[in-house]
Amino acid sequence: MARSPVPVELHVDADDRLPEQVEVSLYYIVSEALTNVFKHAHASVVHIDLTEEDAEIRLSVRDDGVGGADRSGGSGLTGMTDRVEALGGTMRVTSPTGQGTSLVVTIPTRDLAR
């Protein structure tokens, strides 16, 4: 993230490696989210938080940009949602105009092999 055009603050709180399919999906979700921030948000900072608790992964990607993210405007948010739902998870996007964007992903890990 040293080459990021926007500062990224990262916090990870997980005891072990995550199931491979979760790690791969989270990688692509974070990559797409950061691409969206760099292209559209005009943000000054991005916060990424990953926590594992009670057989559940929670990923949060938040920026302080212009907001107004629209799922109908392209395939990025749709692709992220498809990846999350394929793992039995959910994704919530909050993006009021002028107030930044928050993406919260929750993925259950109880039934996934490590």
Rank of each mutant, 00 (worst) to 15 (best):
M1F: 10
M1I: 11
M1G: 14
M1Q: 06
M1V: 10
A2H: 00
A2K: 00
R3G: 07
R3F: 00
S4H: 12
P5L: 08
V6Q: 02
V8N: 02
L10M: 13
L10H: 05
V12E: 14
D15V: 05
D16G: 10
R17S: 14
R17Q: 13
L18C: 05
L18I: 04
P19V: 00
P19W: 00
E20G: 13
E20T: 15
Q21T: 15
V22Y: 04
E23W: 15
E23F: 15
V24C: 06
L26P: 00
Y27P: 00
Y28V: 10
Y28Q: 14
I29H: 08
V30M: 10
V30Q: 07
S31C: 06
S31L: 14
L34V: 06
N36A: 15
N36M: 13
N36K: 07
N36E: 07
N36L: 15
V37N: 02
F38T: 04
K39H: 12
K39I: 09
H40L: 04
H40E: 04
H40Y: 15
H40R: 11
A41D: 09
H42N: 08
V45S: 06
I48D: 05
D49K: 12
D49N: 09
D49W: 01
L50Q: 03
T51Y: 05
T51Q: 11
E52K: 05
E53C: 02
D54N: 13
D54G: 04
A55Q: 03
E56H: 11
E56D: 02
I57P: 02
I57M: 04
I57A: 00
R58F: 01
L59A: 01
S60F: 02
S60N: 06
R62W: 02
D63R: 01
D63H: 09
G65L: 01
V66Q: 07
V66T: 13
V66E: 06
G67I: 02
G67D: 00
G68M: 05
A69V: 07
D70K: 14
R71Q: 12
R71Y: 05
R71S: 10
S72P: 02
G74A: 13
G74L: 05
S75K: 10
G76Y: 08
G76Q: 10
T78W: 11
T78A: 15
G79D: 10
M80F: 10
D82A: 15
V84T: 03
V84M: 05
E85C: 11
A86M: 09
G88N: 06
T90F: 12
M91E: 10
M91T: 11
R92P: 07
R92Q: 14
V93N: 08
T97V: 15
T97H: 12
Q99D: 13
Q99L: 12
G100D: 02
T101C: 12
S102Q: 15
S102A: 15
L103T: 05
L103S: 05
V104Q: 06
V104L: 09
V104S: 09
V104Y: 04
V105R: 02
T106R: 14
T106D: 09
I107Q: 00
P108Q: 09
P108E: 12
R110K: 14
R110N: 00
D111I: 07
D111W: 04
L112T: 06
